[in-house]
Write a protein that binds this DNA or RNA. Structure first.
Lengths: 110, 110
DNA sequence: TCAAGGATGCAACCATTAGTTGCGGACGAT
DNA sequence: ATCGTCCGCAACTAATGGTTGCATCCTTGA
């Protein structure tokens, strides 16, 4: 995850120390250090604060630079019954349907 | 924060249950419930998973997306049956329909 | 050369809270 | 009536984010 690097990047771009950033966000300096080193992650509320403070999108902060982002689509199958699930449930319909259909067809060609 | 509502929206849009979403994200169903109710927030790693699964930006997920807001109101109520749900419920219609259709077809080719 | 101060990382501890397990209610279908 | 599905509530556990204190590295200047 890019979060640590991105925070450090934006902080250093503004030539702030960890301590200064910590004060504006009302956390200890160590918290900033951990975030940047990736040993801890800020909670979501603080994440929003950071994105607003640095004027960057959350995606840019967390995933890295915008142009590096690529959507990874993880498709999940819906819970629609497929044919076999349907068949497993209604196989018995073959009896009445078949029992009527087959004689009918046979009758038709006699 | 919009996060809970947004997750619920995107989940219901796909007609998934909390349980199904929980399985794809490898958390308990309760976790999903808490997220949606706002009594807990997913950690950042899972947040990224969610945004990728739903193919939405993190900003849209966390801060809310005004454009999406409108759509939700419309489709909030009612639940559209898919084909198989329909089939599972009205399979018996095959009897009268088939009873008329098939002889008609056979008659046509005689 | 080395002392001092500033900036950051490391380690241990604490406290918050995210996540799990278990239970029950609401609802629909059979 | 009963079973199955879906979801929320409560209590507990455990993971981890945040704090405090100390160590390290670098720069600067007498």
């Amino acid at each position: 995850m890019m979060l640590g690097q991105r925070i450090k990047e934006e902080r250093e771009r503004r030539e702030w120390t960890q301590d200064e950033l910590a004060n504006t966000l009302n956390v200890s300096r160590q918290a900033i250090s951990k975030w940047e080193l990736g040993t801890a992650y800020p909670d979501i509320e603080r994440l929003i604060q950071i994105s607003e403070l640095f004027n960057v999108t959350l995606d840019s902060l967390i995933k890295g630079d915008d142009d590096l982002q690529k959507k990874i689509v993880i498709r999940k199958e819906g819970h629609n019954m497929n044919f076999w699930e349907f068949a497993a449930r209604f196989w018995w319909l073959l009896f009445p349907i078949g029992g009527w259909l087959i004689p009918t067809i046979i009758e038709a060609f006699k």
